[in-house]
Each structure stands twice: as structure tokens, then as C-alpha cells.
Design a protein around this nucleic acid. Structure first.
Lengths: 319, 319
DNA sequence: CTGAAAGCGCTTACAG
DNA sequence: CTGAAAGCGCTTACAG
């Protein structure tokens, strides 16, 4: 009977259909726990990110969902809110449930040992968005340094010479890379990189909004801002609007990620496409490949970002 | 040993600690599948909503997460995108995994029978945001008719007489109730309810943005719009801004939900607080109570919404 | 080809 | 109080 229900070719068509019909009739429910106990495959994949409410991760999740659905894998989601302990608990849970693998955007401060524990216990890991020093697993992320350089170059080409960087942190690989790209672009053309023109921290709309005051109070106030991501940029633009300044005319603003809402922001946001869908799709497929026994090299796969120019950037105008 | 690991009081403290230390040392991993097979409790709760990328659901999920974490339940998430079939697959998966219960915002068109199948197979159901006719399970949602009446009353008090309703659908209980509240408020003071002043459909930012043209082209163009939710309102405000109209001065706009970003929208959005956190908290606790054998009556628990007045609404001015 | 038996790793009722 | 045995529902290797 179990063979028939699993569509085994060992069972004749007619027999299979009769058995299936009967199973439906008596309300038979396949017990995946029992099957999993026996086969040690559970059909469960874990996904853990900083925060699914962040549209950046939500967009990645959506394409992961598409890929896993196709392979009939169930996925369990968790936020770690950058708490290593919460992430560790989740990995424990996955191990206890016998999950087949995990896709993670590691919490700030994740030690390579945590990845190794998972791997050593038969839970293959694939990383997205951030890498972990010393962990020999596949990583899928955008080329952040290249991306912010694109944005910065664009502003420089528009004639801006005083450019701030708003948001982010040095605690993640992404944060360091994005800042580095901005620094490289500035230095390449001999523009000053001033420590006080970097406003560390903001990564949300609210934080971008709150940073407006600090930005406007900077000495030798910059005429443009490279923002950590679209959320910060949109928050900053709202703040500038409130202060009576028009983004794209009075101050140029770039975002990062090209979220769905970047195009309908007010004004439409110039930003860097970060390939969320690509990251999700490739990460999911890499994990599925690993589950099917395909050998995988560790190391990064960088997705090349693209600049999308819209209305939030314009020619530099001195006050 | 299994007793010691589960902190049973039957085991002396010293013994327990020694056993636990040893377990850690040899890298012992508790097998929840095996335990679940034996006890028929899995520690898994399913949550299925239309779309977790929608901040309304994301905010509900966040408080569900908090409550379930506290009870050490793992939750499995799924979007149904209003496809009954997808929702049905998810419920099947939960049954196969022996999940302890499910919290769902039912897909449009969910038959009461689908709820009953789950319940009859030992999967208790709690509904959020929408109800299902004929399903005798607890429902937690806001009082939608009351909420849109609050918004409409507010606009009427500001002197508006031509008020449109933008977004939503008659296919959900929420949609019908929100429209009814608007109709009631208009009729109560003898204002006209015109079919062409209702723009059915939009529920996203993009859709709200896209609806701007249709709104501006309405005959006897309304001076105010009651929007289905904050996303539609923000999209509409962006569209109005692009058209050179200032929300709150040229056109008054109300939202619904009071999402976190309503307060920092441009301009700050007048909206109806819809108690997402409350809905999530109560739904999770109701389910946990059911799991612990506490009897539950079916039926709705309505959370009373509140009007939050900000800058997107102002006195009516005729052109 | 078919059917009965063993075993996955737990928990619990039961014998000692 | 302790320890060995049964059984949850599958899958698979094996005997017939």
C-alpha cells in the first residue's frame, strides 16, 4: 500500500488508483514523522533571516518559497533579530526535527563553529546576503562594494563633491563592503571622505527618517547621500520633504536593493538593484542540489548589481 | 535519561546535571520526530495568511511569534495568496507532520468543510482577520464596519460631502464590513453613496498608486477618500503628490491598520488603528489554550479600532 | 512477486 | 525506585 501511495512504478496503475481512492475515503493521513524517522529525510528546510518584515528579506523569501514549493519541501521560518542565541536555538530545533537543510542570513557575530555544528550533524547550510569568516559553505550575495561604487560614481558624475553615507554598520560583511565601495569611488577621483559624513546605524525607514536632522546639521552639509538601503533612503526622503527640501533637486539621494516600492516612492528612488530574487533562487537551488548529493564548493557567488536611475538624484546645486 | 533531559522532577538535581553535561559532550540531539510519533504532540503550529510580505500580516505574525516562542512552539509559515488549493495543501502538510494546531487568515472562498477536515483530524483551528461562514471556531479580528465608520465620520466632520472608497473586495468578510461601515456613516447624515465613487480592487501600495488616475477622473470628483488600508492610502498619496496635489490640503485621505510606517508617511497618515498586535496575541493564546485542553467557544472576538488623526486629512475646500 | 518482520528513537505502562 | 519491553507508523531488506 505504501508503495502505491508514493506512486511507485512497481504497482500497476489500476491497483494504485483503487488504493488511493480507498485511502481518501477512509480519511487516511500519511504520517511524515514516522516516514522521516525511518528514512531520515524530513522534507523540511529551515530559513532564518534577520527579520522577515524587512522587505529585502521578504523578497528573497518569496523566491525561496517558489523554488522549495516546486520540490515539495516545507519550510520553517525564523527571525534571529541578530541574536546569535536565538539563531542557535532555531538550528537546534531544525536538528531535532531532522530538517534536511537550512538557508540562513547569519546573525551579526555568528561564529564559524555554529555553522560547523549544523554541518557536522547532517544539516547542510547555505548562506545568503552575508558571509561568515571561516565557514566553508556556499554564499549567495550581491557585490556590495561594486554596488555602492555605482551609486557614488553616479552622484559624482552629476557634479556632487560632498557626499554622505547614511546607515549600515561595520559589524557585517555587507556593511563593510558597502562602505568600502563608497570610499573607493570617492578616493578614485580625489574627493574627501570625512568620518563625520558617515552616519552609522540606520537600516530602517524610521531610522532613516530620524537621521534627517543629523544629516541637515552636518558641517559643510553634503549635497547628496548614499543610503545603506531603500528603506533608509525613503525614510530620509520623507524627512527631507518634511523639512521643505525636495529630494532630487535640493538633495540627491540613492538607495540600495531596488525594492518593489522604490519605483513608486516620492520621488521615485534612484537605487541599486541587488538581485533579491536571484539570491533566493540560487540559494534554494544550491541547497536542493546538496540534498540530492551534488558536491558543492564553499565560497561566494556574487551577483552583479545594477544602477537604476530615477528621480531622487539630480545635478549638484550649491546653495 | 530521557526523564533527566526533560527536567523531570523525578530525577535528582545532581544526576540531571551530570546526564545533561554528558549529553552535550557526546553531541546528543533529541529526536523530536520520534518523540512526536510516540506522544502525538509535535510542538509545531502552522500559520497561514494571504501574504507575509504584507506589513499588516507581518505585524500580526510578529506578535504570534512572541507568544509561540514563549511556549516553545515552532511555527511553520505559509502564504496562500488567496488560493484555496494552496491552503489545502498546507493543511495537509500540517496533518502529515502532526502539527498541534493552525492559525489562519482564510483564503477567499475557503469552505467551512476545509476547516472541519482539519478539526476532525485533531488539528485545532483559530482564525484571524477574516471569518468563514459556518465554521465553529474562534475568530479574532477588528470591528471593520465600526472602523471605516470612524474614518468616514471624521471626514464628514471636516466638511467633506463627496467621499470615495478606494480598494477592497466584497469577497471577504472584511471587505463587506469595511464598505458597510462607510455606507452607514454616509447614509446616517444623508450623504450620497455613489457606485462610481467606489473603486474596488486595490489592496497594495502599487494598486493604490495606480488608482490615482481613476480617482482624479471621477465625475464630481470627491474631495476625500476612505482607503481600504494604509498601503492603498500611501500609494494614493504618492500618486496625488506626483499629480501636484497635496494630501491633507487638496484631497483628504484616510488609511486603515495604522502600520508602523503610517506615522512617517508623507504626509503623516490619518488612519484607523486595527490592533494587529492584539489580534496576533489573542489568537496565539487562544490556540495555546485549546492545546492545553481548555474548551473554547467558536465565534468572533472583535477588537475595537481607534481613529488616529494625523496630517493627511483636513477641512474640505471646494475647487 | 508477496508478505511478514525488523528497526528508526523516543515515551510510558509494566514487571521486577 | 529501576530496567526492560512494547509500540507510535512508516520503509526496506529479507524470507517465502
Amino acid at each position: 500500500m505504501s508503495l502505491a501511495l508514493r506512486d511507485s512504478p512497481l504497482v500497476a496503475d489500476g491497483t494504485r488508483e483503487r488504493i488511493k481512492a480507498h485511502a481518501r475515503e477512509i480519511g487516511y493521513i500519511y504520517n511524515r514523522r514516522a516516514a522521516s524517522l525511518r528514512t531520515s529525510r524530513s522534507g523540511i528546510v529551515g530559513v532564518v533571516v534577520h527579520d522577515i518584515m524587512n522587505p529585502f528579506f521578504a523578497e528573497i523569501l518569496r523566491s525561496i518559497e517558489t523554488e522549495l514549493d516546486r520540490s515539495r519541501q516545507t519550510f520553517i521560518l525564523s527571525n534571529h533579530y541578530d541574536q546569535v542565541e536565538k539563531q542557535r536555538n532555531f538550528i537546534d530545533t531544525l536538528l531535532q526535527l531532522g530538517a534536511d537543510g537550512v538557508i540562513m542570513s547569519p546573525a551579526i557575530g555568528t561564529p564559524a563553529a555554529d555553522i560547523r555544528v549544523a554541518e557536522d550533524n547532517g544539516l547542510p547550510v547555505v548562506l545568503i546576503a552575508r558571509s561568515v569568516e571561516g565557514a566553508d559553505v556556499p554564499v549567495f550575495r550581491g557585490d556590495d562594494a561594486y554596488g555602492t561604487a555605482l551609486a557614488t560614481d553616479h552622484l559624482i558624475a552629476l557634479g556632487h563633491r560632498r557626499i554622505a553615507m547614511i546607515g549600515g554598520t561595520d559589524q557585517t560583511s555587507t556593511g563593510r563592503d558597502r562602505y568600502q565601495g563608497y570610499v573607493n569611488a570617492m578616493k578614485k577621483v580625489g574627493l574627501p571622505v570625512r568620518a563625520d559624513w558617515r552616519i552609522v546605524g540606520p537600516r530602517t525607514k524610521q531610522a532613516g527618517f530620524d537621521a534627517t536632522r543629523r544629516f541637515l546639521d552636518l558641517s559643510d552639509r553634503p549635497t547628496a547621500a548614499v543610503c545603506w538601503n531603500d528603506l533608509v533612503a525613503i525614510g530620509l526622503m520623507n524627512g527631507l520633504n518634511r523639512a521643505g527640501l525636495l529630494p532630487g533637486r535640493d538633495v540627491s539621494v540613492t538607495g540600495y536593493d531596488d525594492l518593489e516600492e522604490a519605483a513608486i516612492a516620492m520621488p521615485a528612488l534612484t537605487t541599486v538593484w541587488n538581485g533579491q530574487r536571484e539570491v533566493g533562487r540560487r540559494a534554494a537551488n544550491a541547497l536542493l542540489d546538496r540534498l540530492n548529493g551534488i558536491e558543492m564548493h564553499g565560497g561566494q557567488e556574487l551577483i552583479r548589481p545594477e544602477l537604476h536611475v530615477r528621480q531622487s538624484t539630480g545635478p549638484a546645486r550649491e546653495r
